[in-house]
Each structure stands twice: as structure tokens, then as C-alpha cells.
């Protein structure tokens, strides 16, 4: 079984909130110094889902990432978790692509990789969180898509997925090859353990440029972007938290209750 997982390298979402800075001019986030970027949390769970399938069914996991040359780190992370190989898709033309552009680049890389049974993506990226690359990619590849998986229950000629909905779960099936986007409910990803951690560290991750995957310049033209970010701001919330006190914790609690009872 061949699984392709698409991952993204993002600014660490767990930086202290006060350290989050943006440049409104370029509409970009300024990464704080000394904080290494990480694999997007949902994408890491997609890798985990792939590894769980590989544990059960054997097969090969290929990981691809559109990003800077540093994205080799997230590929290595995926390899240390259990993926077999990976490619970084890095080209000046790939910078700041919208969802369509990213999905297009991924589709070209997937076509170059060749045969596959499943493509896995995170439900959304932990940075811009557009939440559409998976679905658009499936549309380009002309394969079925199942979103928000919390478990991939089985794979034969169909993939059987448990997906999360607001009031419970659905079991959904689609014929292979299919694309599945993975949600965090699938559970904690494994800690890259033992041997793989050391081996992945030494691996050289191949970098594919636009011409390597046959990506056409017209498709990457920023002027044709489907969506454009025209502004970026940090919301200011001027809230002075009123700390309720009391002689005892119980009294503080009672004071709080009285205060709130008048407001609701």
C-alpha cells in the first residue's frame, strides 16, 4: 500500500502569545528569534495516521512538503516517525501560494511520485488555516475526498473512515485511491523513537523545483491567485480582568456568583 502524506512547516503555534508579531506591510508574521518552526499539528497527525496504517498493512509512506529549504526538517520528522522517504518542494515560484497554488504544486509532485492508494493531509494548517488544500488537491487529482477523519478504520479496495461531526461520528467509505484529511481527534502522534530518529537525522532530503515536477509558471502566477490577503492585524482586546477576591476562597466564589448572576 502506498500512502502519500502532505505536510507543512509552520511557525510554532505554541509561542508565548505576547511574542506573536506581524508586519502589516508585507502581511506576514515575524517569527520570534530562536524559535524553530515545527510540523503543523494536524499534518503530524496525518503522518501518525499513515504510520498506523503501515503498522497494520505494511507499505510505503512518502511525505511531501511545499516550503523553504528548512522544510527538510519536517520531512525528517515524518521519517523519524515512520515514513519511508520524502521530498521538499522548494522554488521561489512556490512562495506565498494560495490554496489552489499549493494544491497544484502538490498534485504535480504526487503525479511524479506515481502510484498511490491514499493521500493524507491535515484538516488545515496551524498557521493560515485555510482548510481547503486537501479538498482542492483531491479535485485536481480527481479522486474522492473524506475530510476530518478521526480514525482510518480499514483499507481494502475502499478506505473506511470515521469522521468527526458536531454531534458524533460518521463512518464513510470511498474507493481507492482517495484523499483523507485528518483531524486532531485521531490522537497524539507517536514520539519519534529509537533507530529512526538517528537515521532520519542523517538523511539527505531531495529538493524538487518547479521544473522537476513540471509545474507550469502560469499556474503559479500570483496575479491569478484565487484569494489574496489584503490585510493582517493583531486583534486588540482591551480587557482588564477584574480579579474577584474574598477573605476565603469560598467568599471569593460567592462574590463572583453574585456579580455574574446580575449579568446573565
Amino acid at each position: 500500500m502506498n500512502i502519500i502524506v502532505c505536510v507543512k512547516q509552520v511557525l510554532d503555534p505554541e509561542i508565548p502569545p505576547a511574542k506573536f508579531k506581524i508586519d502589516p506591510e508585507t502581511k506576514q508574521v515575524i517569527p520570534p528569534p530562536g524559535v524553530p518552526p515545527v510540523i503543523s499539528v494536524y499534518d503530524e497527525r496525518a503522518v501518525e495516521a499513515a504510520c498506523r496504517l503501515k503498522d497494520k498493512l505494511k507499505g510505503k509512506i512518502t511525505v511531501i512538503s511545499v516550503g523553504s529549504d528548512k522544510a527538510a526538517d519536517v520531512i525528517k520528522h515524518a521519517i523519524s516517525m515512520g515514513a519511508d522517504e520524502g521530498f521538499v518542494l522548494c522554488d521561489p515560484a512556490f512562495e506565498n501560494l494560495d490554496s489552489f497554488g499549493t494544491a497544484y504544486v502538490l498534485s504535480k509532485a504526487i503525479q511524479k511520485i506515481g502510484a498511490y492508494d491514499l493521500v493524507l493531509c491535515g484538516r488545515q494548517a496551524a498557521d493560515w488555516g485555510a482548510g481547503q488544500v486537501g479538498s482542492i488537491l483531491a479535485e485536481i487529482l480527481a479522486i474522492p475526498v473524506i475530510t476530518l477523519a478521526c480514525d482510518i478504520e480499514g483499507v481494502d479496495t475502499n478506505v473506511r473512515v470515521k469522521r468527526i461531526v458536531s454531534d458524533g461520528y460518521e463512518i464513510v467509505e470511498a474507493p481507492l485511491p482517495s484523499l483523507v484529511t485528518v483531524s486532531s481527534e485521531i490522537g497524539l502522534p507517536r514520539l519519534p523513537a529509537g533507530v529512526r530518529l538517528m537515521m532520519a537525522r542523517k538523511k539527505v532530503i531531495p529538493v524538487w523545483k518547479a521544473q522537476d515536477i513540471g509545474a507550469e509558471a502560469s499556474q503559479l502566477d500570483k496575479g491569478n491567485a484565487h484569494t489574496e490577503i489584503t490585510g493582517l492585524s493583531v486583534p486588540t482586546r482591551k480587557i482588564e480582568c477584574e480579579i474577584i477576591t474574598g477573605a476565603t476562597p469560598g467568599e471569593a466564589a460567592a462574590n463572583l456568583a453574585s456579580k455574574l448572576a446580575n449579568l446573565i
Binding site: 505554541e14 511574542k19 524553530p36 497524539l188 514520539l191
Partner: peptide, 29 residues
């Protein structure tokens, strides 16, 4: 790959972020 979740969170931070305190636990860089 069996450990208490609290241990895993710490080890995960060490592995991806280079120190055990990353995340909501630290308000500093």
C-alpha cells in the same frame, strides 16, 4: 512508545523545539 502523556509532551518539546518548557508553560523566549 509507551509513557505518561506528560512525559511525552515534554519529550516532544525537546525533540521539536529544543527545550522541555516550550508551549503554554513558558511566557518567554
Amino acid at each position: 512508545n509507551k509513557m505518561p502523556e506528560s512525559a511525552q509532551l515534554m519529550l516532544r518539546n525537546m525533540q521539536t523545539r529544543g527545550n522541555p518548557w516550550a508551549g503554554a508553560q513558558s511566557l518567554r523566549l
